[in-house]
Design a protein around this nucleic acid. Structure first.
Lengths: 343, 343
DNA sequence: CTGAAAGCGCTTACAG
DNA sequence: CTGAAAGCGCTTACAG
């Protein structure tokens, strides 16, 4: 049938071969494999030697069948597909999670739930016990999958603070509000007083929290709340350019602009250039993310770094803890202001 | 032990429950599950109804244990980690493969082999039969994993033409040479005669093939081969900027530049701007990829589109064919010239 | 077309 | 500490 699959490959050694080779029972081999409790040093030694000689590798399917655990974890993305093109953080996150799991010898299943049909298919698959836990990435609120998975009894850890229904979902996030505060405070320190903002979508944690941080700092500085200085963006380059143009139309005197992502900040820079504003001379611009877009930007973008490498490793740590029955909940990680030319 | 894992979840129905419910034997249920050969319509009907009533979902571990197939596929990346940051095509490819496999209900395991230790770990895992096939992405030549996996009897499909030892490895690739030919021909059509190029690394197919296309077209046009017009880049923004500066130093009169990737073309544009050259007036610039970088670039980048969505679907199609024992080999897909302002 | 039975490779109480 | 045995949930010849 499948020449490459079966005929070619020779039979792999089983636990039985190892037991015979080591002169012990299969039970003893299994005990060595699973931590070596209740095994004499001599027996353990003999088994390990036999494993080396035979090249034995455990058959995970057999193990899973009896333990009821799959030994794998899902990285579930419930995003409109464009994010994969646009958001470089996603790649960093995915890589970080893959490698953190690899250190525990746990494979990562990548699942992308765009359409409703895909969501149902994945829910079925995951609920059937094919993975032991889920790393969930979905910026939008009201994502029905989070609740579904939790109700199915699956350990779930989200990336980012869940907006909307406060399910007490475990999550790992950067301190969005604190990061926004750092940036706006910096803009005020450079002497700006008419600080506008282009927010993220207000059904995303980044949208809500960064706007909140912006408002807090302005209020603390005794500056009036002015809704003319606030525009909502959609995390896209062009959307932010349009939002910036609207801000300039309403408030031609604005002297600083806090944009809730680097990609959007690039759009804002383009709009400012078209409007003849010099950056940072006329308008100081601050972004968020410290993505490659921030470095490549001209002028270089002053921005807020999110600790993506730590976010991924913490997500894995929390998920493994939950899979072991512990009840860790939220982890919030600090951000860092990165100064370049734009502000 | 694990409250979220076991206690909470109730026992899932097995094939035995379905058989009892349908009033048939477990063998018959299994036959219905596996295509319904040798099953009477009445029995199939009863089984399907019972599956619906019980909410039965097959236990893949049990199935795998007996069939010897895992029902999953690996997406294996053997890249220096930066590519995940820099190359947006990778995300598109990964998403495309995930979804093409999902249509066949085949989960994708993401594996990233950076270090040698990781390569060995993954080789062991994969060779142990934990996946049925491998989608391999590694632009560098001489990747030892490809050969190792093939020798282990695993169906493998590479993304991009394998450079170096011609193992007759199955692969899917864009027509790099043809794409380069389209671009250089276009530059000549606009009246340019001193066409320089920044290549990709010459141990990558994109580096080798796009350079070959460039040379072919110049030769066909009767232009002299001039090695002063050729610089090797490293697929990075800054590397390409430096390469462009070297070209300008050697050949200040160059009037066109073919850059082997959009990201590098951005670097080239920056270098040209620093040197006071206007694009396209003084120097026409062409990129490769049609990535988001091409759209965001100012001026908009004329480039060559690679059909990434088709590449991913073809990779999956060829891999599934190989897993079924068929012997498909290479698929080369056509590229398309995308005209914007830079050339 | 269908049932009874063997067996995939492992883990885990249960005795000793 | 260790072995013998049961059993996880399926698939697949083998008879009928």
């Amino acid at each position: 049938m499948s020449p490459t699959n079966n005929a070619t490959r020779r039979r792999r050694p089983t636990i039985h071969d190892v037991a015979r080779e080591a002169g012990v029972s299969r039970g003893t081999v299994s005990r060595v494999l699973n931590g070596g409790r209740h095994v004499s040093p001599a027996a353990a030694e003999a088994v390990n030697a036999a494993i080396r000689r035979t090249g034995y590798v455990v058959n995970r399917h057999a193990r899973s069948l009896i333990t009821g655990r799959s030994g794998s974890v899902a990285f579930l993305l419930t995003e409109p597909q464009e994010r994969f093109f646009e958001d470089p953080n996603l790649g960093v996150l995915l890589r970080g999670c893959t490698q953190a799991l690899a250190a525990h010898d746990i494979p990562l299943l990548l699942m992308i739930a765009g359409s409703g049909a895909e969501q149902r298919r994945i829910t079925r698959y995951v609920s059937a016990g094919h993975v032991d836990g889920v790393l969930l990435v979905s910026s939008r609120t009201g994502d029905p999958m989070a609740e579904t998975l939790v109700r199915a009894g699956l350990p779930v850890v989200m990336c980012g603070r869940p907006v909307g229904r406060a399910t007490g979902l475990a999550h790992v996030a950067a301190d969005d509000r604190g990061g926004a505060r750092q940036m706006v405070r910096h803009l005020l320190h450079t002497g700006r007083r008419r600080v506008a903002t282009v927010t993220g979508p207000l059904d995303t944690p980044g949208g809500v929290e960064r706007l909140a941080g912006y408002r807090e700092v302005l209020a603390e500085a005794g500056l009036p709340a002015d809704e003319d200085l606030v525009e909502t963006g959609d995390y896209s380059h062009d959307g932010a350019a349009a939002a910036t143009a609207r801000l300039l139309a309403r408030r031609p005197d604005l002297d600083a602009l806090f944009v809730a992502s680097d990609l959007m900040a690039r759009g804002a820079l383009a709009a400012l250039e078209r409007a003849g504003r010099r950056v940072p001379h006329d308008v100081a611009v601050g972004g968020f993310d410290d993505s490659t877009a921030a470095v490549a930007s001209r002028p270089g973008l002053t921005t807020v770094r999110q600790p993506w490498d730590r976010i991924s490793s913490e997500m894995v740590r929390v998920l493994l803890a939950r899979m072991a029955g512990e009840d860790t909940s939220a982890v919030i990680l600090p951000t860092e202001l990165v100064r370049r030319e734009s502000a």
